[in-house]
Write a protein that binds this DNA or RNA. Sequence first.
RNA 1: CGGAAUGUAGCACAGCUUGGUAGUGCACUAGCUUCGGGAGUUAGGGGUCGUGGGUUCAAAUCCCAUCAUUCCGACCA
Length: 561
Amino acid sequence: MKLNSSYFYTLRENPNDEESVSGQLLIRGGYIKKSSSGIYMFLPLGLKVLNNIETVIREEMEKAGSQELLMPCLLPEDYYISSGRRDNFGSSMFSLKDRFNKTMVLGPTHEELFAVAAGMKIHSYKDLPVSLYQMQTKFRDEPRPRFGLIRVREFIMKDAYTFDRDLDGLDESYGKIFQAYKNIFDRLHVDYKIVRADTGVMGGLLSEEFQAVTPIGEDTLVLCDNCDYASNLEVSTHLYQDDQEEEKEMTLVATPGCSSINDVATFLKLDTKKTVKALLMNVDGKLTIFFIRGDRDLNETKVLKLTGGKELNFANDELIATSNAVAGFTGPVGLTGCKVIVDQEVLHMKNFVVGANKEGYHYVNANVSDISYDMVGDISNVVEGDICPVCGGHIHFKKGIEVGNTFKLGTKYSKAMNLYYQDSNGTQQPVVMGSYGIGIGRTMAALVEQNHDENGIIWPVNIAPYKVGLVVIKASDPVQSAVAEKIYEELNAAGIEPLYDDRDERAGVKFKDMELIGIPMRITVGKLAGENKVEFRKRTDSENTLMSVEEAINTVKELCL
RNA sequence: CGGAAUGUAGCACAGCUUGGUAGUGCACUAGCUUCGGGAGUUAGGGGUCGUGGGUUCAAAUCCCAUCAUUCCGACCA
């Protein structure tokens, strides 16, 4: 492409409404432009990158035996009512009325519709397995879009669905797509971790996430420094260590004004690990008090799973008043009027500090035998330094962006959508489903987060909108432009279209633009063009290499393989 | 949805406190000089100051409302 006659622009300054590096660079490079909160235009360069990512995904999905189709975005609400998910999605689903006053929604994910499509083919066990996928725009009305393309309200997702006779079949189909995902993210050069995760609103038996590792990530990845344990914080566990102290006698002590666990620990000169704190929560309208070690956080996912609750919030004063709990000094000794749930870990602690249910007092040297509770379970988050549940090594954290997710769904959707097949005995059986997603724009953003420097983006060669940039220093010089033109023609003939900067701009501007938009290779045609010499440099190089025109062309060809 | 901030030319911003002719840099047009790392200079073009209302002789500036965007939280496959 010749820049002089093309739609091409860059911005010299960062936009004022974009915080993330990937968002800033993609906007400055003219890849994307925000049209409203969480909704972006993909401009010519951006579309090329998107297409390159899609090409890799298509190739690997086809290799895994999946067939592409295309679903509508606009769907009658009824599908999601049938599956019971209309309420789960709630206001994060875009909804509108058609002219007959029928409620339509913009699809946030398509398990229901794929089950319907699969039903057109699947009648007998002989029709299985089936594997289908699509690249399609999804809509989710996020409460808070942010980080450029990372959390948006409209985005292109590759979503795939598998249909099998039984769990063994599902395992096999899941394995194929799982391997395809590894191939995809390897080929895209994403630095990623695969972690175990919560199944969330999807439901089902198993969820694993492909997480691009970057500090901007919104998910916390729990990793072991000794084995390959990898898990999303929301479902991570750890081994408990028994406190070896002798049990002492519980004693009431005055702790005036110490209503936070840090105050208490400081006042008593103790580590917060020797304390147990109370969290007064509202679980579906009922007061539930949780006790966990003082330095830990409550894990909402685990709590909802344990209690079977739907919604978790902090309890208000009115709700707290239904029990004898004293806010700031709540303890599990003689607590009544509410449900009391104790973290599993507390059972392994000795001589800890807890609230005394009395303003200004705590108990010290409390032990499990001193307290009463209704339920025990794993309800807290792991922290760095905890013991790995697999190998006994130590746990550390990284941050990740969820770029892919795989689910073993089981029969939840097939039953809801009436997707059954007849087995060899002639009886009806629900089809066993799996679902698999990759966020394409999000992957693009994650790549930029992982591959940039102070000058701009550094695309992997196979993802870059153009693999090579061709800069002619003085476009008005007939010798230089003739050499550049020749290189342009030859590379095009070889199937490698260069980004040819033939603008009447100063050299510095051209170099800066090539670096900002992240073109992986650059050929510069300058003073020595008359001697058949040009300069070659990779985006990651710090210096030019002088070579002949032929050498430069061959180098580009080799690096494009 | 709670808390905070911002909205002025294509982009980034100043002006607002203390009301009185709409400003700067980049970008754009024309000229001259320059020409291998975001040039210099001269002359220009481009504005419903987010929107609606109010106060005032007079509002970008003060007041009220509203919309949009961003940040912190809540939420989130």
